[in-house]
Design a protein around this nucleic acid. Structure first.
Lengths: 241, 241
DNA sequence: GTCTATACACAGATAGAC
DNA sequence: GTCTATCTGTGTATAGAC
């Protein structure tokens, strides 16, 4: 799968996000018209991502946010009760979106090698499509309350466990080598993270997200794959699609 | 090399750091006695690292710092002119320390494979020994002024170029495979970074820094090493020490 | 729903006694 | 060198007109 295909499928879901934000917080905000709320939540979120990328959430003042959105302070507070709640809304919303996408693209009945490739690619592609959110979550997690931090950690563990399970199944089937699968999973996650934390670097070097994902796959497979078994299953050079 | 050996060598240099901080900033601070300054700079730096790890530098107030160090606000301002200058001092000092250590442990005349192993290990070991500083630099880099950010980036490029050079030399000698060495270097850096960004995770799982460094090496070598050439050079199983 | 004006708290920083 | 007390700016948040 290439990034463009992924993006197309994703976009068909994407428009729902801000409607969800409105509906989930309907009781706590003063805005009643869905159309207005959706339009402005999008504007607010985008501005938060921009400013936070430049100087961090703590350093962002409500006046920064006001001037970037062209909304007054008073208006902003009609959409959320406090700066801290805004942080919490962004986190919650992003988290639920991520989970949905993963569930949609993951098929536990595929053979392990295919699952491994798919999980790695989907994670990198998703972090490309929603880079502001991934970056934001990583950098601002420490500003969350206890509950929020727990949610971030549980997500981290969830994706790691997914990888471990795939690697173990593959090992049992003789496709993957015997390794410390938990450590392998952590290192794969580190490579995925690299993409959204340092994207400016790859942009400068004209490395596309497809290039990067393929390289991560190659790196990972050279370590995990049982070469004998693979030769047996794929006698021609169809490996790597 | 094991972490313990590395740490012993490092400690013999380490005691100098706070004396350097004093001497380099002697003109800008009101404290005149070296002994007092050194003792308190150490206390201040440690407190900053602790608090920043919990909530970030922006969110740290001078009053937080005051109560954590048991020094009054007035006293603190005898050691630096402003909160921003404190940030700058910490960054500058750490940067110069890192460069010294790298220079001390890197021998460009060693064979490429040995250099690769050494650079990877030294980086991980150093980030273990000075984890608060590495973590601080990564998370707080965006709060620096233009000059400071440029320094961080140049350090990042410096270590990456070191790796690229080693991989190229090795390829020419037939020890390493032909790869996109710049991408390989970036991914190695991502694996190194994982250690100091997520150290709590490995502590929980009882993975030591030696375990982790060895795993990174194994991972990297399975991708980079030219298996034929290695067999030729090391007919027995002495590989990996 | 959005605005301006403002309350109130708390941050960084300094003065000056000891 | 260190302290307490205090100044001053700026941040979050709200009240109330439109």
């Amino acid at each position: 799968m290439k990034y463009m295909e992924f993006k197309k499928i994703l976009d068909s879901l994407d428009s729902e996000i801000y409607r969800e934000v409105f509906q989930e917080n309907q009781d706590n905000i003063r805005i009643k018209k869905e159309k207005t709320a959706v339009k402005n939540f999008e504007k607010i979120f985008d501005a938060v991502f921009q400013i936070t990328y430049e100087k961090g959430f703590q350093a962002m003042t409500m006046r920064d946010l006001s001037s970037r959105t062209n909304m007054s302070l008073g208006s902003l507070y009609a959409y959320f009760a406090s700066k801290e709640e805004l942080l919490s809304i962004i986190h919650r919303q992003g988290g639920s979106m991520i989970k949905n996408v993963f569930a949609k693209f993951h098929n536990p009945d595929d053979p392990p090698l295919e699952q491994l490739r798919s999980v790695i690619k989907v994670h990198i592609f998703l972090s490309e499509a929603s880079r502001p959110w991934f970056y934001f979550t990583f950098m601002e997690a420490k500003n969350l309350d206890t509950e929020g931090r727990a949610a971030v950690l549980s997500m981290e563990e969830h994706t790691e466990n997914m990888l471990v399970h795939i690697l173990e199944t593959g090992e049992q089937q003789g496709v993957f080598l015997k390794r410390n699968h938990l450590l392998t999973a952590s290192i794969i996650k580190a490579m995925q993270q690299e993409w959204y934390l340092k994207r400016w670097k790859y942009k400068k070097r004209k490395i596309s997200v497809d290039d990067y994902a393929d390289y991560v796959l190659e790196f990972t497979e050279s370590f995990c794959l049982n070469a004998e078994q693979v030769k047996y299953n794929f006698p021609d050079n169809s490996i790597g699609q």
